[in-house]
């Protein structure tokens, strides 16, 4: 394991001892620092803290916040709440998948530039359908509008 990663994990460990952090908080910190939940990191931490790795995976696979695979540079989140759904969110997802050449359950493009995800509701129902690219919120979208909106992120 790289020394840098070890240092990051050690500091998460020290913090967890000091604050009495639970597994969810440790995983949240890990993901914030490393981008996703890396197998190597989980096993290192499990040894360090003397907690079975299965406990980390039990939690990591339960909550939708945790990612077990690397994610793209730009995160496109399509809201799939009720209102977005009845106003055509699914058509936006289909179009974006086609545009980004994502097949079946693939979420991240081969060049690691985009990850396409959905979220249950962002609570901005008044401007449905809603798509969030990184931190920017796009309201009242259509499939074609969204194709245009992700263009600037392609470079």
């Amino acid at each position: 394991m790289e020394k840098q990663m070890e240092e990051v994990l050690e500091s998460i460990y020290q913090k967890s001892v000091a604050h009495g952090d639970n597994i969810i908080t440790v995983l949240q910190n890990m993901q914030n620092e490393l981008g996703y939940i890396q197998e190597e990191a989980v096993y290192w931490y499990s040894k360090r803290a003397n907690i079975p790795a299965s406990q980390f995976y039990g939690v990591a696979t339960f909550y939708s916040q945790f990612h077990l695979n690397p994610r793209g540079k730009n995160i496109i989140t399509v809201c799939s709440g009720t209102v977005c759904h009845v106003k055509g969110a699914q058509r936006i997802v289909s179009k974006l998948k086609e545009e980004l050449k994502l097949k079946d359950k693939e979420q991240t493009t081969k060049d690691m530039n985009f990850t396409l995800e959905n979220v249950n509701c962002v609570g901005a129902c008044s401007i449905a359908p809603v798509v969030i690219v990184n931190e920017k919120v796009f309201g009242k979208q259509s499939p074609d509008k969204m194709v245009k909106n992700i263009k600037p992120y392609k470079e």
């Binding site: 709440g81 009720t82 209102v83 249950n120 509701c121 609570g123 901005a124 129902c125």
Partner: peptide, 12 residues
């Protein structure tokens, strides 16, 4: 932990 799709009152 408002999780209903279509609900945003607690957040607001």
């Amino acid at each position: 932990d408002e999780g209903d799709p279509g609900a945003f009152m607690d957040r607001s």
